[in-house]
């Protein structure tokens, strides 16, 4: 458990090494992957990536919340949130500790 943070730069570098496109094009394509996923989700569509997981939209209705600092009641407006459901493959892989 190292606790590093991976960003777009490392993803692009991995793509650059695996696919053999230029660094610039690799970075643009990583961005395109994220853009396409975001676009589908904004359209309300579920995004299913086999052996990774699925991203779905859930509609939340309005509820009363409280400003924790002032104690004042404020309505939390209806909104859409993304639910990520990891696949079994991903769940298993984050629990591998040398076995299987």
């Amino acid at each position: 458990m190292s606790g590093n943070t991976i960003t777009r730069a490392q993803l692009s570098e991995a793509v650059y090494e695996e696919v053999g496109l230029s660094r610039n094009e690799s970075a643009n394509l990583v961005e395109a992957v994220l853009d396409e996923m975001a676009k589908s989700l904004i359209d309300g569509e579920t995004v299913k990536i086999s052996s990774f997981g699925s991203f779905a939209i859930r509609h939340k209705s309005q509820r009363m919340g409280r400003n924790p600092k002032t104690g004042e009641e404020v309505p939390i407006l209806p909104r859409r949130v993304i639910i990520f459901k990891p696949s079994h493959v991903l769940k298993n892989r984050v629990n591998l500790k040398g076995d299987s």
């Binding site: 190292s2 606790g3 590093n4 943070t5 991976i6 993803l11 984050v94 591998l96």
Partner: peptide, 9 residues
């Protein structure tokens, strides 16, 4: 994630 790292996009 396997290594306990975080991926921030």
């Amino acid at each position: 994630l396997e290594h306990g790292d975080r991926v921030e996009l």
